[in-house]
Design a protein around this nucleic acid. Sequence first.
DNA 1: AACACGGGGAC
DNA 2: GTCCCAGTGTT
Length: 359
Amino acid sequence: MSLVQQRLKFQKSLASWYAQSQRPLPWRTQPSLYRTVVSELMAQQTQITTMLPYFERWMRRFPDFTCLADAPVDEVLKLWEGLGYYSRARNLHKLARTWVAADPKPRTREQWQTMPGIGPYTSAAIVSIAFNEPVAVVDGNVVRILARLTHDTRSFKSNGEAVKAFTPLANELIYPKNSGDHNQAMMELGATVCTKHQPQCGICPVARLCAGRHHPDLAQIPKIQRKATERVEIDRAWVVRKGAVLLHQIPASAGQLAGQYELPKLDALAPVKPTAKPILSKSRSITHRRIKENIFRIEAPKRTPHEHKWVALDELESITLSGPHRRWTRVLLQEISGARFLGDPCAPQDESDWPESLR
DNA sequence: AACACGGGGAC
DNA sequence: GTCCCAGTGTT
C-alpha cells in the first residue's frame, strides 16, 4: 500500500496529533491574514524560537498592514535588525504598501506570488492558511518528512531539486478541507518530531505509515549534496585621524558593490601585520563561503593610497558603506565619535550590543 | 542552475 | 568546527 493510497489515514492521524500537540504560536492562537504574512516572512530560513521575540515586538509596533505601510522604511529595518536577510523586511514593507493600495485585495496564489518577497513556498502558506486553498507547502521540513515516509534514499543535487521532487507527493497528501492546518501540521511534525537529528519515531503520529521507520539510515535521509564550505580570512585596517576614518572606495568597474565604501584591506596600508590582536573579528557566511574578517587598529600611513579616502564623521551619513561591513563599521565609528547613528537601523543603539573589545 | 543574502541554534 | 533553519531574488 502506497502512502497516497493511505492518505486518509495519514491526514487523520496528522490532524489529530496537530490539534493536540501544536505549540501555541502567536499567529495560531490569534490568527489573521496580516499575522500569517508577517510570520511566514520572518520564518524564512529562520528557526521559530529565533524569530518569536521579533514577531511579538513587531506586532506591538506594526499591528496591521496600514500601520506598517505608514511607517518609514528605516524604522521597519530597525525592528528587523538582528534577524538577517534584510531584504525580507524591505519586501514586507513594500508588500504592505501594495496591499493597502490594492483593490480588490490579492487572494489567489498567483496574485500573492507577484508580491515582493513572496515565492512558491510563502504563497502556498498564505493562501492555504488564510483562504483554505488546497496547495501544499514544501519546505525543508516537508522534504524531510516525505523522504523518510517513502524511504527515499536518492541523493539530491540541491535543496531546490529535493523540493521539486517532493512537491507532487505533498499535493497528493494535502487535506483539502483544512489545508492550512494540514500544512502547518506537516511543518510542526518536521520541527518537533521528524527532526534531522534523533527523530522521535516513538511519538510520531504517522510512524505506522512510514517506510523508513525501521531503517538504521533514517537520520541520514534526505541526502542533499552541499558544496564544501570554502574558508576565507580577510584582514582590514582601522585608521583614524582627526575625526576622520580611512575608507576604501570600491571601483566603479567592480560588479557588485561599485562605488560603495568599505574598511581598507590591511595589506594595502601596512607592509607587516600588527602584533597586537585585532580589535574586532567577525565571521559571516555567503552561500558556501565562510569569511572571517579581522580588523586591526593601525597608525595613519604617510600617503593616502589610490582609491582610498579620508571620510569625516559628518560625511558618513551621506556615503554608502558596503553591506557586509556596514554594521561593524558603524559600531567602530560610533566608538570614536560618540555619535549615535540613529538613522542607521544596523547600528546598535545600546552599549550592551557592542562587541566585548569596544566596551 | 548557481549564487547572494544573516545570524543563531543544535550537535 | 559543522549543518541547517516555515526561501526569494537576481544573474
